[in-house]
């Protein structure tokens, strides 16, 4: 992983997560953002580690994996450009519940959890708007998980 902040290369406001958000929300959070680049095989987050950031994926592909004892890891979902990774930083205890691994070269902007929470706490309107953007992501992942559990393509 390369922590290579290159201001101006990626912008929060251009990410799908912020499309339609109240004016200025992305701009106010922009100073927190750190641009990162991951090569194939790099681990973004690891199960059990502290969930310390919110990751917005701009390009590439990230596999979310569950590690099983004595069995190969299972990929349960892949994320790509326009997707976001992680709400674990909002849910106590703030730790990652799965691994995230780059399976293509991946570029992200990442917001550190502490400063992000502080910013949203300080401006409740921004906090509410942010959660209104995040909740549909959570709901969609839940819907998809339910459908995957139904094993639609099975016998």
């Amino acid at each position: 992983m390369t922590a290579a902040p290159t201001p101006g290369a990626l912008r929060l406001a251009e990410h799908r997560f912020f499309v339609g958000a109240p004016s200025g929300l992305a701009d106010r959070l922009e100073p927190l953002a750190v641009e990162r680049s991951y090569a194939f095989g790099d681990t973004l987050v690891r199960e059990g580690d502290i969930a310390d950031r919110f990751v917005l994926i701009y390009e590439g592909k990230v596999a979310l994996e569950i590690v099983l004892p004595d069995r190969p890891s299972v990929t349960i979902q892949t994320l790509g450009g326009g997707d976001v990774l992680g709400w674990s930083w909002l849910v106590p205890p703030p730790e990652w519940w799965l691994d995230a691994r780059a399976v293509k070269r991946t570029r992200t902007l990442e917001l550190p959890a502490g400063p992000l929470r502080a910013a949203l706490d300080a401006h409740p309107d921004d906090g509410y708007a942010f959660l209104l953007r995040l909740l549909p992501v959570v709901a969609q992942r839940l819907d998809h998980t339910r459908l995957q559990l139904m094993d639609l393509h099975g016998r």
Binding site: R16, K61, A63, L64, E65, P72, S73, V74, T75, I76, Q77, T78, G80, G81, G82, V103, K104, Q140, H144, L147, Q148, D151, L152, H153
Partner: peptide
């Protein structure tokens, strides 16, 4: 192509077809 679940030998997408529609 996307599949419901895979091991690490699969480098394609994992998830529902609906997740690919926005793209």
């Amino acid at each position: 192509t996307t599949v419901d679940a895979a091991d690490r030998s699969w480098y394609g997408d994992v998830g529902l077809v609906t997740a690919r529609v926005p793209d």
